[in-house]
Each structure stands twice: as structure tokens, then as C-alpha cells.
């Protein structure tokens, strides 16, 4: 029998969402840099900021999962 908490499933779902989101950001950034290599620095900075936003949402879910567990 599998034992676990629903919170863990929630955290997993959030990780899937964040994975898709960060993947999209990476795709967009690489495409942008390939089109316009001279803008690479600006694109990279914006990519990191956008990735941090997506990551933060996943971490909100981790916190909720942690609280739900305790």
C-alpha cells in the first residue's frame, strides 16, 4: 500500500507547472538571443527575473505543502 500525503501531490503538480513555465521562458530567451545576439545581456537579465517569478509560485506551493503536512 502506498502511504503519503495529498500535500506532496500538490507540490508535485506545482513543480510540473513551474517546469513548463521555466521551459517556456528558456525557449523564448534562447530564440530571442539567436535572433539578436547583441541583446543577449538584456534578454538574460529579464529571463532570470521572469524565471524567479515562476519559481516563486512553485515555492509558494512548497510552503503550502509543508504547512499542510505539519
Amino acid at each position: 500500500m502506498v502511504v503519503g500525503s495529498v500535500a506532496a501531490i500538490g507540490a508535485g503538480l506545482a513543480a510540473i507547472g513551474a517546469g513548463i513555465g521555466i521551459g517556456q521562458i528558456g525557449k523564448g530567451a534562447v530564440e530571442g538571443i539567436a535572433r539578436q545576439p547583441e541583446a543577449a545581456n538584456d534578454i538574460r537579465a529579464n529571463m532570470i527575473v521572469a524565471a524567479a517569478f515562476v519559481e516563486a509560485v512553485a515555492l509558494f506551493a512548497v510552503v503550502v505543502a509543508l504547512l499542510g503536512n505539519g
Binding site: 524567479a52 519559481e55 516563486a56 515555492l59 509558494f60 512548497v62 510552503v63
Partner: peptide, 13 residues
Amino acid sequence: ISLMIRLFANITA
């Protein structure tokens, strides 16, 4: 609130 949770969650994680 999102500022608060973002920093807290990132470092704790």
C-alpha cells in the same frame, strides 16, 4: 505579501 513570501520561501527551500 508576494515580496514577503518569495524571499522567505526561496531561502527556506
